[in-house]
């Protein structure tokens, strides 16, 4: 029952979702919309499970005074304060909830995003080192593409931006499409394995 029921659910809904794609009949479209609504309901309940998980893990950290436990207090405080403000004063423009979101969460997210610039530099340094023939090809290609994308490249020679564009349009796009075809076929076979109940690893069972 523990594995058979989820597999049966997967089969029924998988086949239905596949078949409804080939029809615009209002009954099937409405059925599909109904299933998507159910999924939203399931998601809301699991979100509750997620929040409980955060509370459980961080309260355990606080009680055991594990490493960096004061941050756990901040996490719990953040959830409680935002929930109280959201339910108490609403989330519309001018509300304290939105003020905290725009002035604390958004800058923090932007800070994390800005870190990418530094990580790109460190990753590029490691990736573009002249270690072997393949790395040399990568290094030369990267130099051409990067120069071709900035005004300096145009000033050196018009050939650089043209070559950069050729690299992007031809070898790069060809490689990307090859990978995408592989991903598409992999997705199809994985979906078929799940629908037909061949793949059960995601349920923790042996296939």
């Amino acid at each position: 029952m523990r594995t058979r029921f989820p597999i049966a659910i997967c089969f029924v809904f998988g086949i239905f979702t596949l078949l409804q794609y080939f029809s615009k009949h209002p009954t099937l479209t409405a059925m599909y919309a109904e299933i998507l609504d159910w999924m939203q309901i399931v998601f809301v309940f699991t979100l509750l499970v997620g929040v409980i998980s955060i509370f459980k893990i961080h309260s355990a950290k606080i009680s055991r005074q594990e490493r960096d436990w004061p941050y756990s207090i901040l996490t719990i405080l953040g959830i409680v304060v935002m929930a109280v403000l959201g339910f108490g004063y609403g989330t519309e423009y001018g509300s304290p909830f939105l003020w905290i979101f725009q002035n604390i969460q958004v800058p923090m997210q932007s800070t994390m995003f800005a870190l990418i610039a530094f990580f790109v530099a460190s990753a590029a340094y490691r990736g573009f080192r002249f270690r072997n023939k393949e790395a040399a090809v990568l290094l030369i290609t990267a130099i051409i593409v990067m120069l071709g994308r900035v005004p300096l490249g145009h000033q050196i020679s018009d050939l650089i931006p043209q070559t950069a564009q050729w690299i992007i349009d031809n070898p790069s796009t060809a490689a990307k499409r090859g990978i995408l075809i592989g991903i598409g076929l992999g997705s199809i076979t994985t979906a078929l394995r799940v629908i037909l109940g061949i793949e059960r690893s995601y349920l923790g069972g042996r296939s």
Binding site: G182, I183, G186, R193, I198, R206, S207
Partner: peptide, 20 residues
């Protein structure tokens, strides 16, 4: 690409997954 999707068959050696 497809290596990610082939992983479970590759690691488990399961005949049905390998066939897919």
């Amino acid at each position: 690409g497809e290596e990610l999707f082939a992983a479970s068959g590759y690691l488990s050696g399961d005949e049905k997954i390998v066939s897919s």
